[in-house]
Design a protein around this nucleic acid. Structure first.
Length: 771
DNA sequence: AGCACGCCGACT
DNA sequence: GTCGGCGTGCTC
């Protein structure tokens, strides 16, 4: 028997199946879908068993060991991997990395051991630990030839170490043996309280009155038997778990009944329910039926902020709830994954990457806030969680439920064409009227000599809320203190050395930072070009808004929420909780505050520079803007009459004006836009990103490729254009955009093949990214 | 990607 | 003669 293996090296040259012999000892254990360790050239590498065949001409070396007793790549996941390969042409090893949690991947390293550190070159001696161990860093690898020579002289040894990125957590437990003849048993009367065959942790034994040394002594004498038990790290949330079970309204009941009647179909449902119409109640009702029929439910939310409130609702009603997202610690994620792999959960709440989780008996997939662009993976292997979910719903023959108050244009179009089944919720269970929306033209404010970032009306409204002890939400969607700094003397703008994008100024940390690659450096007011102290932050970022809020409303308690302050674990929840507890009057945030928890005391929501996101050079900018504003408007007055202020300079765009109109009015305009521009859903859009060392040559390669593409029938080719991020660490960037109905990727593949050259890269982006 | 091998120039 | 840098070719 031969195992077909993909080795976990992300490189074109080795991205293929390798055949390996299976040693007799492992014959029974090697199965499709497990991870194994194999010799690969002079290395030992992890690999995935993707198939078993009887014969092979090339197999010559044996599998070293297996890492899983149960496949981590199910047959279903294999079909998803095939789908990802077909749609993206990414490397297989990259695809594996995308669909399995990083905790199952390996870290490879080298460790130098030496007992004669003092005989080694002086500059190396300090790198060794007391025990004579030196873990090589990547930048030390160039020393390897020298180290190898020293190894031959037996002064040191070089060891290759391979470690799984996270290990399971174990705890020590003790079992009481009541059949021992230990003579001093009567010293420990507490023993009588213990139950045989029950496992006790040290902490539990301490509660019975055993000291740590008691436990050691009793273990030594066989009264306690020690064992290791695997423990799952539990994930704590600060929210309560009270189940607010409500009786469904007739409208909700009807929608829910339709879904429950279709649990044995593979239909896709678009659940369009206005804000506050109770979509979550319907999810819970459907999940209840799924669990009752011994199946599992997968609930996806677009971002981490929304995990906690969703988990709270779900955990209040169901037991065995799993959760999965990137803010879990590595250990927690590892444990959640294994619980799910063992099918120990009934419901999983997860973000985008959770769409690959190994649930074997799926009964329904729910994608909440389906319009959110966070469902689109934009780096590495590009995919849309909706497409993967669609795949899985076909595989399991189960329904897929897409929920939204503002469905994406693409999904609504599918519903119109009857590819999706449209379900609509038009009523709010509590008779709350829609909030009043005020559009404030800042041009007029300026004419009235108001240079503040707050209009007079908004300022008055905030003061009013402060007096009434009600809360205010303010959205400003730009990070940092100022989007760039400018030298007033010579006009120089500090830019990222890699991306050539202007650096954002952060006042908190006195830093300049690149939003695209994360490059940062300290801010000094002296210009690096003309050496004059004339550098000044220009423009408005959220930190500036915070400063202005504090100046304008000195007695208001302001909380700021953006990626800078929510980077640490649990920070989101803490901030939400503080605001919910009325420890602040105003919550200022980037787009992350537009969704999530209900705040009963919020009666005012404001968006500053609402037209900012319309200026983004993306074909779906108006959709994104409309969604953001609508969500924000929905945050105000969920429990009492609310007001919404939308400030900006150019507010006559339909994406902004539609906020106070029904969804359908936005949808019509947007669809018309898409038709004129020939974008989704009428044409598919994909892009090719060229990156290369020399500016001109990169452009020429892109241009040559464009000419080749133009020969294809029914494909519109645009570009090459210079993208927003004009440089990367690989060099200069150019983008070619294509629009098409159908595309033969095999042909594209062959064309890309001819573009291959050292130091020049082309990447295919199958779904539209903002390049 | 990461490793060995082999060629070449620089330095004791 | 030896060391280290870099281009090339290979990995079941």
């Amino acid at each position: 028997l031969i195992a077909q293996i993909i080795v976990d090296i992300k490189h074109q040259a080795v991205d293929q199946i390798y055949d390996y012999l299976i040693p007799d000892a492992l014959l029974d254990d090697v199965q499709k879908g497990i991870r194994v360790m194999v010799p690969f050239g002079n290395q030992t590498r992890m690999g995935f068993v993707v198939g078993l065949v009887d014969e092979s001409e090339t197999a010559s070396r044996e599998i070293i060991e297996i890492l899983d007793s149960k496949p981590i790549i199910s047959d279903e996941l294999s079909t998803i991997i095939d789908y990802l390969y077909e749609s993206t042409r990414s490397l297989y090893s990259s695809i594996f990395e995308t669909v399995i949690p990083s905790e199952l991947l390996m870290n490879y390293g080298k460790v130098i051991h030496s007992e004669q550190v003092d005989h080694l070159p002086e500059e190396w001696q300090e790198k060794f630990s007391k025990k004579g161990i030196w873990r090589l860093k990547k930048e030390d690898y160039h020393l390897l030839p020298r180290l190898k020579r020293l190894q031959e002289q037996k002064l040191l040894t070089i060891e290759n170490v391979t470690k799984q990125q996270t290990a399971p957590k174990y705890e020590t437990v003790y079992f009481y043996q009541d059949d021992t003849e230990y003579p001093r048993l009567h010293y420990y009367p507490q023993l009588g309280e213990l139950t045989v065959n029950e496992s006790y942790t040290v902490a539990m034994l301490k509660a019975f009155g055993f000291s740590a040394s008691n436990v050691t002594t009793l273990t030594k004498n066989g009264v306690f038997k020690r064992d290791q038990r695997r423990v799952a790290r539990t994930v704590e949330h600060v929210f309560s778990n009270e189940d607010k079970r409500v009786i469904l309204t007739p409208e909700q009941q009807q929608v829910s009944n339709t879904l429950k009647a279709n649990l044995h179909t593979n239909k896709t449902f678009l659940l369009h329910g206005i804000t506050g119409s109770g979509k979550t109640e319907i999810y819970l009702d459907v999940i209840e039926k799924v669990i009752a029929s011994k199946k599992q439910a997968l609930v996806l939310v677009p971002e981490i902020t929304l995990i906690a409130p969703m988990v709270q609702r779900i955990q209040a009603r169901f037991n065995r709830v799993g959760l999965y997202h990137s803010m879990l610690s590595k250990g927690e994620r590892h444990d959640q994954y294994h619980q799910i792999l063992n099918q120990d959960v009934d419901v999983v709440v997860a973000t985008r990457s959770g769409v690959f989780l190994p649930l074997e008996t799926l009964g329904v997939i729910i994608i909440d806030e389906e319009h959110d662009q966070a469902y689109q993976q934009t780096e590495g292997v590009i995919y849309h969680a909706r497409d993967i979910a669609l795949n899985r719903s076909q595989y399991h023959h189960i329904p897929l439920v897409l929920g939204s108050a503002t469905p994406s244009v693409v999904s609504m179009y599918q519903a119109e064409k009857k590819a999706y089944h449209l379900l609509t919720l038009t009523k709010r269970p509590f008779e709350i009227k829609e909030p009043n929306v005020h559009f404030v033209d800042m041009k007029i404010e300026l004419q009235a000599k108001n240079t503040s970032i707050f209009s007079r009306a908004l300022k008055q409204a905030i003061i009013d809320r402060l007096n009434k002890k009600e809360q205010t939400l303010i959205l400003f969607n730009r990070k940092g203190f100022a989007p760039f700094v400018l030298c007033r003397q010579c006009g120089h703008v500090p830019r990222c050395p890699d991306c050539e994008v202007s650096l954002t100024y952060y006042q908190d940390k006195e830093q300049l930072k690149c939003h695209y690659c994360g490059y940062e450096k300290p801010y000094v007011p002296t210009c690096e070009m003309c050496h004059q102290p004339t550098l000044k932050p220009i423009g408005v970022g959220i930190e500036y808004v915070e400063q202005q809020l504090q100046k304008t409303f000195p007695h208001a308690r302001v909380l700021r929420m953006d990626t800078t302050v929510t980077r640490t674990k649990g920070a989101h929840e803490k901030l939400w909780y503080q605001f919910l507890n009325e420890e602040a009057d105003i919550l200022l945030g980037t787009q992350m505050i537009a969704k999530g928890l209900d705040f009963p005391k919020v009666t005012l929501a404001a968006v500053l520079m609402a037209d900012l996101s319309l200026k983004v050079p993306a074909y779906n900018a108006s959709e994104q803007t409309y969604m953001l504003l609508t969500q924000m408007a929905g945050r105000s007055g969920r429990h009492q009459m609310g007001e919404v202020f939308i400030q900006g300079y150019q507010l006559d765009h339909y994406a902004i004006q539609s906020v106070e109109k029904p969804y359908a009015s936005f949808y019509r305009e947007a669809l018309f836009d898409r038709q004129i521009g020939q974008y989704e859903p009428f044409m598919k859009v994909a892009q090719f990103l060229f990156e290369g060392e020399a500016y001109l040559k990169t452009y020429q390669k892109a241009f040559t490729f464009k000419k080749q593409l133009s020969l294809l029938k029914d494909v519109v080719v645009l570009g090459p254009t210079s993208p927003f991020i004009k440089k990367s660490k690989w060099g200069y960037r150019f983008v070619i955009t294509i629009k098409y109905q159908t595309l033969d990727l095999n042909v594209i593949d062959k064309m890309l093949e001819t573009m291959k050259e050292d130091k020049y890269y082309v990447k295919f982006y199958p779904i539209l990214d903002v390049l």
